[in-house]
Amino acid sequence: MFWASYLLAALAVILAWPVPVMLSRARWPARAPKTALILWQAIALAGGLSMIGAMLTWGLEPLGDNLLAGLRGLAALLASYQPAPGLDLIHVFALSAALLLGVHLVFTLLLTYYRIAKQRHRHRTLLNLLSSPAKDSPKTLVINHPAPVAYCLPGGSGSVTVLSEGLMELLTPAELQSVLQHERAHLNQRHDLLLWAFAAWRAALPWLPTSQLAQRAVNELIEMLADDAALETTDRPTLIRAVALVAGGERPAGSAAGAPARELLSPEEAQALTSANRLRRLLTPMAPLGRAAQSLVLAGAALLLAVPTVLLLAPGLAG
């Protein structure tokens, strides 16, 4: 596993810096947001697997020629209480670092879920006190507030879309419907799970460029997917007007309704709303990425996951 550890370390470095930087600057993700999301997930998984795998294979190198053999050797070593030839302090340190990093990632993932669930429960309790169901949809809650607010609150079968009275006065029925379709797309496509995973990754490794770039890119891409869902039932000019009015918070002079300037409540949506890529995509439609190109990207994502797996499990890579 000598060479495997070096190859995994090199892959981890590549996925930690140059690859996410290039992908975050690319223009094609706006033409295929779903495909780009899959690639970002592959980069995150392969990067984490490579980081942990590099330390693990280095530490287990004296005990076997692949990960499974090394783990069996480690189990036998712990059971026999006998010293292993070649297993020095450096290898023990590498094994400890791999264990600590793995536990840290899993713990941060669970802690982030707990915090999000707690915040949602508190938020839902407040909504029960301060909102009322919309006349046409019990899954839509209306809060008495003049600011234009629209967001979704995931919760499985209890998921709801929240609108403010200010938003309902600000938008026309067609514009309001486009906003509803956008928010419901977040719920139907379970974008909250993606946000949870990438938020946990950034919390666990805030110093890693990949985690920061990935979280911003994923926030932007899920807004694009929700825009696409809204465009299935409404025309593009209506959606653009709705986005612009909610962002600006007021109608042009002469309109019947007005509200203070205010952005969407959700920080992720507020960030994505001002994204140049999202606005450019709405104002200047681009042709979808071709099937061949998308297939190539998906193949690359699969390869990213396959390479560290093979390096970890394939025998005969010990130098």
Rank of each mutant, 00 (worst) to 15 (best):
F2E: 11
F2Y: 15
W3C: 08
W3P: 07
A4N: 01
A4W: 03
S5H: 08
Y6E: 09
L11R: 00
A12H: 02
A12V: 01
A16N: 10
P18S: 00
V19K: 04
P20L: 06
V21H: 15
L23S: 10
R27F: 12
W28Q: 00
W28T: 07
W28L: 01
W28H: 03
A32K: 08
P33W: 07
P33T: 07
K34M: 12
I38P: 09
L39E: 06
W40C: 04
G47P: 00
G48D: 09
G53A: 09
G53V: 10
G53Y: 08
A54M: 03
A54N: 04
L60C: 04
L63S: 05
L63K: 07
G64H: 11
D65G: 04
N66Y: 03
L67Q: 06
L68K: 14
L68T: 15
G70H: 02
L71H: 07
R72F: 15
G73P: 02
G73Q: 04
G73D: 07
A76S: 12
L78I: 05
L78T: 02
Q82S: 02
D88C: 08
L89G: 07
F93S: 14
F93Q: 14
A97W: 10
L100R: 08
L105W: 11
V106H: 10
L109G: 11
R120I: 12
L127Y: 01
L129F: 10
L130I: 10
S131D: 02
S132G: 11
S132I: 09
K135S: 14
D136V: 13
S137G: 05
K139L: 13
V142M: 02
H145A: 13
A147K: 11
P148R: 09
G156N: 06
S157A: 15
G158H: 14
S159W: 04
T161I: 11
E165G: 12
G166V: 01
M168A: 07
A174C: 06
A174E: 12
L180V: 03
Q181H: 15
R184V: 06
Q189V: 02
R190Y: 14
D192W: 13
L193D: 09
A197T: 08
R202V: 08
A203Q: 10
P206H: 00
P206F: 03
T210I: 13
Q212H: 15
R216K: 15
L221D: 05
I222G: 05
L225Y: 09
A226V: 00
D227S: 01
E232A: 13
T233Y: 13
T234Q: 01
T234I: 05
T238R: 00
I240F: 07
R241N: 06
A242V: 05
A244F: 05
V246D: 08
G249K: 04
P252Q: 05
A261L: 09
R262P: 09
L265D: 14
P267H: 01
R280T: 08
R280Q: 15
L282M: 05
M286K: 14
M286W: 14
A287P: 02
L289A: 01
A293H: 00
S295F: 06
A299D: 08
A299T: 14
G300M: 01
L303T: 13
L304A: 03
L305Q: 10
A306S: 09
V307F: 12
T309E: 06
T309K: 00
L313P: 08
A314G: 11
P315E: 03
A318V: 12
